[in-house]
Design a protein around this nucleic acid. Structure first.
Length: 169
DNA sequence: AAGCTTACCAACCGCATCGAG
DNA sequence: ACTCGATGCGGTTGGTAAGCT
């Protein structure tokens, strides 16, 4: 039983794969290995072709803000069906869309965390769950003074606006 | 300049589905 | 009807480039 190669693809391997597809078309991936052309699994060959070697792929990688907005919209409508979402973007793969989404998710989680920690030291002395209750509209708390209340209200409004803007739920 | 953090990307894994035999 | 290999997809991980302190 021979071991399959894993990890990054070399230029030579790419050339072999391109050559194979030029002759045989983009299918029968497993026979590339079985005929001794590449020591890669069929899955690995297919993935390499779909994500990197396929003609028409966008080389200038990054998604534009408009594209990102579109991904968010589509994800909201059809869920994590990345392959379907990718069909709306010429030259993008499901992997591209998936990567965009997970990066965005991490970014939003971080923003949310930063925001909560930045408001935890406010002048009312409230923090943690108490303050979160207030932010989500459950002020079962006694406020120190009118002035603090006004300032806090403004802070809450600002925070809610930022949360909405960032689509933080 | 060095070390650390974050964002981005490539590629693997596991699982589901499909079709041929 | 069942098995098994091929294929496709979503989730995840690891490497690295870029930015920041």
């Amino acid at each position: 039983m021979e071991a399959f190669k894993k990890g990054p693809w070399s230029k030579e391997e790419d050339a072999i794969l391109l050559d194979w597809v030029a002759v045989n078309g983009p299918h029968n991936w497993s026979s590339i290995q079985s005929k001794g052309r590449l020591m890669r699994t069929g899955k690995s060959c297919r993935l390499r072709w779909v994500n990197k070697l396929r003609p028409g792929l966008k080389k200038g990688r990054k998604f534009s803000p408009a594209e990102e907005e579109m991904v968010v919209k589509l994800q909201g409508e059809i869920g994590n069906m990345w392959a379907h979402i990718a069909q709306f973007f010429l030259g993008r793969t499901d992997n591209d869309v998936k990567n965009l989404w997970s990066t965005r998710k991490k970014r939003l989680a971080r923003n949310k965390r930063d925001l909560l920690s930045s408001i935890s030291g406010n002048e009312t002395g409230m923090h943690g769950p108490e303050l979160v209750n207030l932010l989500i509209g459950n002020p079962s708390v006694s406020l120190p003074s009118f002035l603090s209340l006004r300032r806090l209200q403004l802070q809450v409004l600002r925070t809610r606006f930022i949360f909405d803007y960032l689509h933080v739920r």
